[in-house]
């Protein structure tokens, strides 16, 4: 196996295109891919490491945050503005692992791996992020919902890399349930965001379907920045009903459905009242 660590974007793209198709694995934080290598689930000929690329931006624009694909989550979490401007993302990053893992893992890696149990994907879906994809012909951008095709499947084309993510700064909240509260895989997680200009609520869930997804019927029930308890309850019920719910060793479908309703209510209320933070 060959390890490539280019310092320039063009070299990285060229390495992708020059390498044998399907035999080049892209290495970002490595928290997932290296386990696959150990277990023999992946045996690429070329390992393309992105660690030397200058892709660690963290830039606040007027109404959104640009995050470079290889920025470690710990640096995102430490941004002094994040908790105030995008509380849901701050909560989601804070729910991941211990300090060392957060210094390792990246947002880009998380999106490309498209793991069914990612705690970041639901909040990024609810915030309607845009993903910047860099290829030999330049950079294109895609709404995250279109980027994610299914578990472990994305719209990345041959010769493309995730370059950055734009995250709208919106009132938002992230709620999750785990067998062990700290450093565990969530049984389900729920993200809610409110877009004041459009007066639109957005709800996304993970751990329920094969991949995180939006709960659009539930969203449509909510109106205005302070929906009443009745509407919130109806949205929770709708989210629990519409989802195709899976069952595995972490939770039964019945419990997941119950959690879905409960956590959707909690996340909406948190956004509506401007109260952030999963209660300790």
């Amino acid at each position: 196996m060959q390890l490539l660590a280019p310092t320039r974007a063009e070299e990285a793209i060229a390495a992708l295109l020059d390498g044998p198709e399907g035999r080049v694995a892209v290495l970002a934080g490595g928290t997932d891919l290296l386990l696959d290598l150990d277990e023999g689930k992946s045996s690429p000929e070329v390992l393309l490491s992105l660690h030397r690329l200058p892709w660690r931006e963290l830039t606040w624009e007027a109404e959104r945050l640009e995050i470079g694909a290889t920025l470690p989550l710990a640096q995102l979490e430490q941004d002094p503005e994040l908790a105030r401007r995008i509380p849901g993302l701050h909560e989601a990053v804070g729910a991941i692992g211990g300090v060392a893992l957060r210094h390792q893992a990246t947002l880009g890696g998380n999106l490309v791996r498209a793991s069914p149990v990612s705690d970041l994907i639901p909040i990024l879906l609810a915030l309607e992020c845009e993903v910047g994809l860099l290829g030999s012909g330049g950079e294109r951008s895609l709404p995250l919902e279109q980027f994610l095709l299914g578990p472990r499947r994305t719209a990345l084309q041959r010769g493309e890399l995730v370059r950055r993510v734009w995250v709208p700064a919106l009132p938002s909240a992230f709620r999750w349930q785990r067998v062990r509260p700290a450093n565990d895989v969530s049984q389900i997680s729920v993200a809610v965001a409110f877009a004041p200009k459009e007066e639109r609520w957005r709800i996304a869930t993970a751990g329920v379907a094969p991949l995180a997804r939006r709960a659009k019927a539930a969203e449509a029930i909510l109106r205005g920045p302070s929906p009443g308890e009745e509407a919130i309850a109806a949205a929770g019920a709708s989210a629990a009903e519409e989802a195709e719910v899976r069952q595995d060793r972490r939770a039964t479908d019945a419990y997941r459905r119950h959690l879905l309703r409960t956590l959707v209510l909690r996340a909406i209320r948190a956004v509506a009242t401007g109260v952030g933070g999963q209660p300790a």
Binding site: L3, G30, L34, S49, H51, A100, L101, H103, Q104
Partner: peptide, 25 residues
């Protein structure tokens, strides 16, 4: 596999998991 922390080292002053870091990285 990054789940126990026993292999933590500092790289550039920051905690990292040496089991999930390639030496060449």
């Amino acid at each position: 596999s990054g789940a126990c922390g026993a292999c933590t080292v500092l790289i550039d002053g920051r905690p990292r998991l040496s089991c999930l870091t390639l030496s060449h990285q």
